[in-house]
Design a protein around this nucleic acid. Structure first.
Length: 233
DNA sequence: GCGACAG
DNA sequence: ATCTTGTCGC
């Protein structure tokens, strides 16, 4: 399969995988979060099941209090199919465009998807962190790879997520009696800090506020667009 | 060869 | 990811 990449290249599957391994070598798990973390951003992407139009949104919240201080978005066409393990090639171009429309520089970014909990240690959160040079955390709703024991049902309960004999993240219960999230460092954060920050950003819902609000933003944009299309025949 | 497989 | 109503439980 030929894989068009972030840089308009065309690559075969093994070439794209090799690029991921090369980039993964640049990922740092040394904590570079400021003390305290004031601005936390959430990112998400929305699109039609068979549509080619993507909507990306970034929402920046200020802590403590988790108040929204800025939003940015972008829309774009996507030329890459969903291939497990290559999500970043599909979503990052429009996400990066959304960040170009953002004025503030967040202290940390929460991403919908995996960080290093990835077959080649380069989930979408890690790829984005490298690209932006900012701390990122992967907050996925389900597992891509790795083994784990189910965590307890209470908020804060967690179990290590292991891959190839090493821990790549945690399976974290973010609210009482909800399905756990799969948390892994993207870039410039360690595993424990990634889990702690995620938990601190979770209010009344399973998903942390930043990505939850980003999801709402992109969904709103997509539906507004669809409504506008409908009104113009 | 067979199953697994973020969004 | 997204399509969808009601419904069970705190």
């Amino acid at each position: 399969m030929v894989i068009p990449c972030l840089h308009n290249w065309s690559m075969t599957y093994p070439e794209a995988a090799a690029l991921q391994r090369q980039l993964a070598a640049e990922v740092t798990l040394v904590n570079r979060l400021p003390q305290p973390v004031r601005l936390v951003a959430g990112v998400d992407v929305s699109y039609q099941p068979h549509g080619e139009l993507f909507f990306a949104g970034v929402v920046v919240l200020e802590r403590p209090g988790l108040r929204v201080v800025e939003e940015a978005s972008a829309r774009g066409r996507v030329e890459f199919p969903y291939v497990p393990g290559f999500l970043s090639f599909r979503e990052l171009p429009v996400v990066i465009e959304a960040f170009r429309n953002l004025n503030r520089v967040p202290d940390a970014i929460l991403v919908d998807g995996q960080g290093i909990a990835h077959p080649r240690r380069l989930g979408v959160a890690s790829h984005l962190g490298l690209w932006l040079g900012l701390p990122t955390v992967g907050c996925a709703k389900s597992r891509l790879c790795g083994e784990y024991e189910p965590p307890g049902p209470a908020r804060g309960d967690r179990q290590p997520l292991q891959l190839g004999g090493e821990q790549v993240g945690v399976v974290l219960t973010t609210r009482d009696r909800v399905k756990p999230l799969f948390i892994s460092p993207g870039h410039l954060v360690d595993i424990d800090t990634a889990a702690q920050l995620t938990l601190e950003c979770c209010g009344r819902y399973r998903m942390p506020e930043p990505t939850r609000l980003a999801h709402h933003l992109t969904n709103r944009l997509r539906k507004e667009y669809l409504a506008e299309m409908a009104s113009e025949e």
